[in-house]
C-alpha cells in the first residue's frame, strides 16, 4: 500500500462559547493521518464533535487550535479537492439529479460536454441511469444518497469525507448502500474518511478504524482491519473483531 499521507490533522481542538459565557470543548487534541487511497472510519458515541471535525477538515470551520493539511497544503477554506457527503438533505432540491451531480465542475466553469460526460459516468456507476432528469424529492432516501456519492465523485476530489452518510436510512437500504459504496470504492479508489456510529458498518468498510471518545472528542484507539474484501459480516473473523472493538466502544452515551 502507498504510504503517502494525504490527510493530516495535528492536535485539533475546538471550543464553542456557550450562552452562559463558559467554554464548551467539542474536540480536544485530535490527531490523525490518512494515507493515500486508504479507507479510514471514525467511530464514536454520541453527537459530539464529529460533524464539526469533518467541517474543520473541509475548511468550512476554523479549529480553535491545531492544523489540518490535505495533500500537503494547509486547509484554510473549502477546496474542490476535498469532497464531503453529509447525513441528510445535502442535495439541492431545486436541481435535477444531473444538475446536482454536475454542480461542482459547473461551479468551476468546466465545459458542458465534458462535465456532463463525467457526471453521466458516475450516475451510471451508482446505478441511477434513467433518473437524470428527476428532482431529488421523487427519489428514495437510498437513491438520494447515491446521487450525493455520484456528485462528490464527479468533482474528482483528492479526498472524500463522509459524515454518517447512511445514518438516516433503514437497515435494509443501509446494507445495500454499504455494499454499493465498497464496490464503487474498489473500482475508483479514493482517500476516504468516513464517520459513523455503527460498528458493523465500520468494520465492513474500513482499512483502519479510529475509535473516538465522547465529548470532547479525541482518539481513543486505532484498529487495522485486514480482512479480505468484500467482507462477510457473519464470518467468524468479522465477529471476532466486532467483539473486540465493542468491548472498548462505549455507545451508551
Amino acid at each position: 500500500m502507498n504510504n503517502e499521507v494525504v490527510i493530516k490533522c495535528e492536535n485539533i481542538s475546538k471550543t464553542f462559547p456557550t450562552a452562559d459565557g463558559t467554554a464548551f470543548d467539542v474536540i480536544a487534541d485530535f490527531s490523525i493521518e490518512v494515507n493515500k487511497n486508504e479507507f479510514v472510519v471514525l467511530i464514536g458515541p454520541g453527537q459530539c464533535g464529529k460533524t464539526t471535525l469533518i467541517n474543520i477538515i473541509a475548511g468550512l470551520e476554523e479549529a480553535t487550535s491545531g492544523i489540518v493539511t490535505v495533500g500537503g497544503e494547509l486547509v484554510t477554506e473549502p477546496d474542490p479537492k476535498i469532497g464531503v457527503v453529509y447525513q441528510e438533505t445535502n442535495l439541492f432540491p431545486w436541481l435535477t439529479v444531473m444538475g446536482n451531480v454536475e454542480f461542482g465542475p459547473k461551479a468551476q466553469g468546466e465545459s458542458k460536454a465534458s462535465r456532463q460526460e463525467r457526471a453521466q459516468k458516475y450516475i451510471d456507476l451508482v446505478g441511477l441511469t434513467g433518473f437524470e432528469n428527476q428532482h431529488p424529492n421523487k427519489l428514495s432516501g437510498g437513491m438520494q444518497q447515491r446521487v450525493g456519492i455520484a456528485r462528490v465523485y464527479t468533482n474528482e476530489p483528492l479526498v472524500l469525507l463522509l459524515d454518517e452518510p447512511f445514518g438516516h436510512l433503514d437497515a435494509q437500504t443501509r446494507y445495500l448502500m454499504e455494499e454499493e459504496l465498497e464496490k464503487i470504492w474498489r473500482q475508483e479508489r479514493r482517500t476516504v474518511l468516513f464517520v459513523t456510529n455503527n460498528l458493523e458498518e465500520a468494520i465492513f468498510l474500513a482499512d483502519r478504524i479510529v475509535l473516538m471518545t465522547n465529548c470532547p472528542s479525541t482518539v481513543k484507539q486505532e484498529y487495522i482491519i485486514d480482512l479480505p474484501r468484500p467482507r462477510d459480516i457473519t464470518s467468524r473473523e468479522f465477529l471476532k473483531i466486532r467483539e473486540e472493538i465493542s468491548k472498548n466502544l462505549d455507545l451508551t452515551s
Binding site: 467541517n55 474542490p80 464531503v84 453529509y86 454542480f103 461551479a107 468533482n155
Partner: peptide, 8 residues
C-alpha cells in the same frame, strides 16, 4: 457547505 466544498 456542500456548494463551498465544490469550490463555489
Amino acid at each position: 457547505w456542500v456548494a463551498q466544498t465544490f469550490g463555489a
